[in-house]
């Protein structure tokens, strides 16, 4: 039997959050954490969590699993159960709405701040803008971000300054556009990032790299942005 301990909080009922224990029979299968949550929700329909694609591409079910942020749908029990215990909490650092559901407004606000869209004001050609495979390769490891917030909510700098520090996810996306040969707003983008907080509050802790469920490396991208900013200032 697996002992699953889940963070519960319903603002209409509970004065404060608490951990609720469930006994769960895995029948010897190496299920995904999301499978466990789904089955527990049949027992207790009031248990609340986000989920959608259940294959690790939509980024809905980022939760803190036995102390480490990850996607419930692609984290097998064999990777996260210690002894017979599984502990599931909401992603840390952002306000909890209910149970495992957090308020991600601050996270999205930082994403929007970096102007996450192509800027190129020259009139587009009749076909696509050409881009060589080498130029395109620079976007690999950047565009795959699924905005699950596992990285930013694992980042102490983001916990401390979520209003001012863009956070690993937003910065990864900032670099995705800086690195795109088709984008022409490099100067403008850098100018928006050169205060002491947006980028430079990254202290290279690298929690983001450790938890990213897509295996991306925000710290490296942040390093690239920092170098661009420094080259620009010098």
């Amino acid at each position: 039997m697996l002992n699953v301990s889940i963070y519960r909080y319903n603002p209409e009922v509970d004065a404060e959050p608490f951990m609720q224990d469930f006994e769960f029979d895995t029948q010897g299968k190496d299920l995904m954490v999301l499978d466990v949550l789904e089955k527990l929700k049949i027992q207790d329909p009031s248990l609340v969590f986000r989920r959608s694609c259940r294959e690790g591409v939509c980024g809905s079910d980022g939760v803190n699993i036995s102390g480490k942020n990850g996607l419930a749908c692609i984290t097998p029990l064999s990777e996260c159960v210690r002894g017979d215990k599984l502990v599931i909490r909401p992603l840390p650092g952002l306000p909890v709405i209910r149970d495992l559901v957090i308020d991600m407004s601050q996270f999205y606000a930082q994403y929007e701040k970096i102007q996450p869209y192509m800027i190129n004001n020259s009139p587009p050609p009749a076909i696509e803008r050409l881009q060589s495979p080498e130029e395109r390769k620079k976007l690999d490891g950047l565009y795959e971000c699924i905005l699950c917030a596992c990285c930013s909510t694992a980042c102490p700098s983001f916990w401390w300054n979520p209003e001012k520090f863009i956070g690993p996810s937003g910065l990864l996306q900032a670099y995705r556009f800086l690195a795109d040969s088709r984008d022409t707003a490099t100067e403008e983008r850098l100018a928006n990032l050169d205060d002491p907080f947006s980028v430079f509050r990254c202290h290279g802790i690298m929690n983001c790299v450790q938890v990213c469920p897509k295996g991306l490396n925000p710290t490296k991208a942040i390093g690239h942005i920092r170098n661009m900013l420094i080259r620009n200032a010098a």
Binding site: M118, N120, A126, I127, E128, Q131, S132, P133, R136
Partner: peptide, 23 residues
Amino acid sequence: GPEAIFELEHMGLPFSRTEEGRI
């Protein structure tokens, strides 16, 4: 279709590329 695809590309969709730089 082609018009709609090129619009997406102009919007920034990171298509894979051929040696000629096309989609």
